[in-house]
């Protein structure tokens, strides 16, 4: 317990409005234990009272992969650019799940935590950041599955082209996390007062998946659609990951730069909007 020394009598000042870009990183750091508790809670409560436990994190991607192989690979006959179907779909699903789960976590920050936020103060950013982290853990579990399947194909003598750009994997995750966080925060800030958007966001996200090369490679798109798809800042990330480990897809440095700049701008806007709403959202939610 820290006691008050006259020397560090810095008052806490509660004002009508904070600065636009004021993010109290020190306070965030002070609440790191709360961040840890939220991450833990997210993961632990997911599989409480289940027999399979954390294995449940794998059921959804496995079944989805099988379904995609049947519908998109089999019925629709969409090419996977020469990569084995299970690996192709699994990699897409893994990245997309991370993005969409993180986006959902941060876009529902105010709605799902209104009761807690209404009673106690702590830096609200702790909650979406914890959401990013717990989803990272879930993705880590799925990554283990991916690596196992991948190793299986290797052992079976399948020629998979791995290259050094796979080392950029952490960067890809960072980009996805940044996009999910900033878009989510903007949405959550706006929907805390005007709920109209909340209904749009639900199926908008589903539609958005089809505008991202998750279940198809960018190469199958015609030139016209290709330009549109390349405007999507997530496109270069998905393509680059598949390029790194499966040898299909494409690595576009320009695209990754575009994605990073897009993310920085979105994050900038998100912080401004979130800061404004954070202080009085209890009055409007």
């Amino acid at each position: 317990m820290e006691t008050l020394k006259p020397a560090n009598r810095q008052p806490l000042v509660i004002r009508p409005r904070k600065g636009l870009l004021e993010v109290d990183l020190k306070a965030l750091w002070r609440y790191r234990d709360l961040w840890y508790m939220y991450v833990r809670r997210d993961i632990v409560t997911y599989y409480k009272q289940t027999v399979l436990g954390p294995l449940w994190f794998l059921v959804q991607p496995v079944l989805t992969t099988v379904m995609y192989m049947f519908v998109f690979g089999g019925l629709a006959g969409i090419s996977t650019d020469g990569a084995p179907q299970p690996l192709f779909y699994l990699s897409g699903i893994m990245l997309w799940n991370y993005f969409s789960d993180s986006f959902n976590a941060s876009s529902n920050v105010f709605a799902t935590n209104a009761s807690v936020f209404g009673k106690v103060y702590f830096p609200r950013l702790v909650v979406p950041l914890a959401g990013l982290t717990s989803n990272l853990v879930k993705m880590g579990i799925q990554l283990v599955l991916f690596v196992l399947v991948y190793a299986g194909y290797r052992i079976a003598g399948q020629g998979l082209h791995v290259n050094a750009t796979l080392l950029l994997f952490p960067l890809y995750i960072l980009l996805l996390a940044g996009h999910a966080l900033s878009w989510g925060l903007i949405i959550s800030s706006v929907t805390s007062k005007y709920r109209d958007l909340r209904y749009l966001v639900g199926f908008g996200l589903q539609l958005f998946m089809y505008a991202t090369p998750v279940i198809y490679p960018l190469s199958v798109a015609s030139d016209k659609f290709r330009t549109v798809l390349e405007l999507n800042p997530l496109t270069p990330v998905f393509e680059a990951f598949k390029y790194g480990c499966l040898g299909c897809g494409s690595l576009s440095w320009g695209g990754l730069l575009y994605s990073a700049v897009f993310m920085a701008v979105a994050l900038f806007v998100a912080v401004i909007v979130f800061n404004r709403v954070e202080r009085t959202f209890m009055d409007t939610v």
């Binding site: 009598r9 000042v13 004002r15 009508p16 106690v120 209890m282």
Partner: peptide, 17 residues
Amino acid sequence: KLLSQVTAPTTGEIRAW
């Protein structure tokens, strides 16, 4: 509520040590 920072004041300032 203002003091516990659940919501922000419209005018004025609170200082707490």
